[in-house]
């Protein structure tokens, strides 16, 4: 059973160590708008900015270039840099969409990317980072389902940017927006399946 909680709300009458919560005077309080998972004793944010982690696969857009050091927009408040090494021949221009992996995070505010590759054409949809896990689904089931129904090539970045190319992008977008809005309500996979089925013809 999961329960919706607001910042400052008590999640445990005793001291409990968990993310997105804090302890004061022997009690544990939520720091976020989120769900409290009684079973796993964890606080899951329902909203909020993305927290980058090393090895996260992200989608970004090149926003600046200086001597083969590229600034990349990941929708993150800090800086994101892609330093192209000697052996990479790749060069980018502003507005290029890339897929990359986080190599390092300095002082929690500068992200260093590696293993970048350009994504040709298509568009980018930004979703709330807190909903990314639901868009992907368990073992990629959700994104696969959308991709097949819309015949769209989709790559989901952990930062909330989603790249899409080909097929019925409008339908894929609608499905993803629906997930974003209803991520916390059970039976999501089935609802999305029905929605995709109904719209397949259009």
């Amino acid at each position: 059973m999961k329960q919706i909680i607001v910042p400052g709300e008590v999640v445990s009458q005793s001291q409990a160590r968990m993310d997105n919560a804090y302890v004061e005077n022997g009690k544990t309080y939520s720091k976020v708008m989120g769900l409290y998972d009684e079973e796993h004793k964890s606080v899951i944010p329902l909203e909020g900015p993305w927290k980058p982690r090393i090895d996260d696969a992200v989608i970004g857009i090149v926003s600046e270039e200086k001597n083969k050091v590229y600034e990349v927009d990941l929708g993150f408040f800090g800086r994101t840099l892609l330093i192209v090494g000697k052996f990479d021949r790749e060069s980018y221009k502003v507005g290029d969409i890339i897929e990359a992996t986080i190599k390092d995070i300095e002082d929690r505010k500068t992200i260093i990317l590696t293993r970048a590759r350009p994504l040709e054409g298509g568009t980018v949809l930004a979703v709330k980072p807190a909903k990314v896990a639901r868009v992907i689904g368990k073992a990629n089931t959700m994104v696969k389902q959308i991709s097949e129904a819309a015949k769209t090539y989709i790559i989901v970045g952990m930062n909330g940017m989603i790249w899409m190319r080909g097929g019925n992008i409008a339908l894929a977008t609608e499905a993803i927006r629906k997930i974003e809005a209803e991520a916390h309500i059970s039976g999501l996979t089935e609802r999305i399946r029905l929605m995709l089925e109904q719209n397949k013809g259009s």
């Binding site: 607001v6 910042p7 400052g8 309080y29 720091k31 976020v32 944010p45 909203e47 900015p49 709330k128």
Partner: peptide, 10 residues
Amino acid sequence: ANAGIQMRDL
């Protein structure tokens, strides 16, 4: 809170 900003209280 709606923006998901971490707060100790509301």
